[in-house]
Design a protein around this nucleic acid. Structure first.
Length: 497
RNA sequence: GGCGCCGUGGCCAAGUGGUAAGGCAGAGGUUUGCAAAACCUCCAUUCACCGGUUCGACUCCGGUCGGCGCCUCCA
């Protein structure tokens, strides 16, 4: 069975095919680095991370490129505001972005090209477009001529004519006068820009927004990509323009498959910087395990809106995010099951023959099958849920009086966790440390110290040892009132909240 | 105005022509000194509404209502 993906270009689910057998060349539009990544970015890059992991697990050699837009108006504005050099500002946010991605469990792309390091390629591409009659110089700028490309609009399913009316209302008079068609877009913006001026045959200036991705993807991955991805908001105009300029320059299809992920919404509205209703990844990391955010993102199909619900505190700030909280609880369930499996006494695992429970068997195959259907991550997670139930059942069985399990089932369960970690990027940390980190963070939020709780537990254990259950239970009730749950086990009492 | 998406149990969320995955919450049980965790059982004759096509529709077609997105920078 092969991967089927929804291709924006055709509007249909299609089998994913690559130009070169067994090699997948993928380009994803990266962030413009003038601010911290928000949950929308997190979602997007988690989605493509899972796509890449899935392809690798399916045997592809993947070459994954994701750019940094480090030359851009917004960067210049922000830099001017902060009195910082644009390049320094961009570098600062690239660093922050890389930290955030790592915490989300996203593998580093193979290639991370920056606009500032591809100016010659961009200039060459613009030159090629002028030569072929698809671009024209007007004043200090160079524009792409939309009318020179018959297929303009094929990705976003609209016509240049339809755009004429729409665009003319929004484009300034001066700009309109410089353009032949209102939908023409700038390839080279002439002028002097503090900290971002480049020499070119068209005069000093800097690249327009769209041309960078064409130039960088062609340089690193070739003239035709197997897959190009990005947020839904990039379909038009960004990706439409990428197609136009690339295909006009090369005469070849730019990308055979286009994948777009849906938005993150807050209160039914798209989360975006321009609306100001965004939460940065790092502010959410302060309140939840980054891996819980990853789980949360994966709980919804990538093309559907992901709505972030929140509970308000009295002062109007966000008090809690219930769905991320739920994801964090699921993550704890995952790690608890893994820990139980890994700490089973060797003597309970027997080299006997018996069928391995269905829930445990071939989790990797089940995950790949789920993801093969247009990267259905919620179904993959439902497979994980069933697997975890199977693992707990196994652990129960092993720990029952005179209980034991087969070596085969034990090994297959371990392989299951390995597959979850490798393919979904979940559950790969050391269970005890992550579980304690989550617990201690929650305790901290409630003003509880670990020492305080553990002292009370010790007092209760002494009471229990003395069979003074009334006292032991009163201590437990006291802790329960604080939100602390106790779990008595063979090797002592553990606590969670 | 043009293009497009969505409406599934108390909540979240898959499915998209053959009779509703999974999770959270809830109820009962096993286990436990009692709990918690874990496990077992139960929890939508029904998929916004109205028509139509079909042997059969949550799934296809038409309409209605409700919500959202793109057409301008945005993941």
């Amino acid at each position: 069975m092969a991967l089927r993906l929804h291709n924006t270009l055709t509007g249909k689910k299609e089998e994913f095919r690559t130009l070169e057998d067994g090699v997948a060349r993928i380009y994803v539009c990266g962030p413009t680095v003038y601010d911290y990544a928000h949950l929308g970015h997190a979602r997007c890059y988690v989605v493509y991370d899972v796509l890449v992991r899935h392809l690798r697990a399916s045997g592809y050699r993947v070459i994954y490129a994701r750019n940094y837009t480090d030359v851009d108006d917004k960067i210049l504005h922000r830099a001017a505001e902060k009195g910082e050099h644009p390049k320094a500002l961009a570098e600062r946010f690239i660093q922050a972005f890389e930290e955030d991605m790592e915490r989300l469990g996203c593998d580093k792309p193979d290639i991370e090209p920056k606009v500032s390091e591809h100016i010659p390629e961009i200039i060459a591409l613009i030159g090629r477009l002028i030569e072929r009659g698809h671009a024209y110089q007007s004043g200090d700028d160079v524009y792409f001529s939309v009318e020179s490309f018959d297929e303009y609009g094929k990705l976003s399913h609209r016509s240049a004519d339809a755009l004429r009316t729409g665009a003319s209302e929004r484009v300034s008079k001066e700009e309109l006068e410089r353009k032949r068609h209102p939908a023409d877009f700038v390839l080279w913006k002439g002028g002097e820009f503090e900290g971002a001026t480049y020499e070119s045959p068209f005069g000093p200036g800097r690249p327009g927004w769209h041309i960078e991705c064409s130039a960088m993807s062609m340089k690193h991955l070739g003239e035709t990509l197997d897959l190009h991805g990005g947020g839904l908001d990039l379909v038009f105009p960004h990706h439409e323009n990428e197609i136009a300029q690339s295909e006009c320059a090369t005469g070849k299809p730019f990308s055979n498959c286009w994948v777009h992920n849906g938005f993150v919404e807050v209160d039914k509205e798209k989360m975006s910087k321009s609306l100001g209703n965004f939460f940065t990844a790092r502010e959410l990391f302060n309140r939840y395990e980054p891996e819980a955010l990853r789980y949360f993102v994966m709980s919804v199909h990538y093309r559907s809106p992901l709505s972030l619900d929140w509970e308000l505190a009295d002062d109007g700030s966000a008090r809690a995010f219930p769905s991320i909280e739920e994801a964090e609880h699921r993550l704890e369930t995952l790690y608890r099951a893994r820990e139980r499996l890994e700490t089973l006494p060797e003597g309970r695992i027997k080299p006997i023959e018996a069928p391995t429970p269905r829930e445990i068997s071939d989790l990797e195959g089940r995950l790949l099958r789920a993801l093969n259907d247009d990267l259905n991550m919620p179904v993959a997670l439902s497979e994980v849920s069933e697997f975890l139930r199977g693992v707990n059942e196994l652990a129960d069985r092993a720990m029952a009086k005179k209980g034991s399990i087969t070596r085969a089932a034990y090994e297959e369960a371990r392989e299951g966790f390995e597959a979850i970690s490798r393919i979904l990027g979940l559950g790969g940390s050391e269970p005890q440390s992550i579980l304690e980190r989550i617990r201690d963070r929650r305790a901290n939020e409630r003003g509880l110290s670990r020492e305080e709780v553990e002292a009370k537990i010790q007092a209760r254990d002494e009471a229990r040892l003395a069979k003074d259950f009334a006292k032991a239970d009163s201590i437990r009730d006291e802790l329960k009132a604080l939100g602390v749950e106790l779990h008595d086990g063979p090797d002592g009492t553990r606590w969670t909240l």
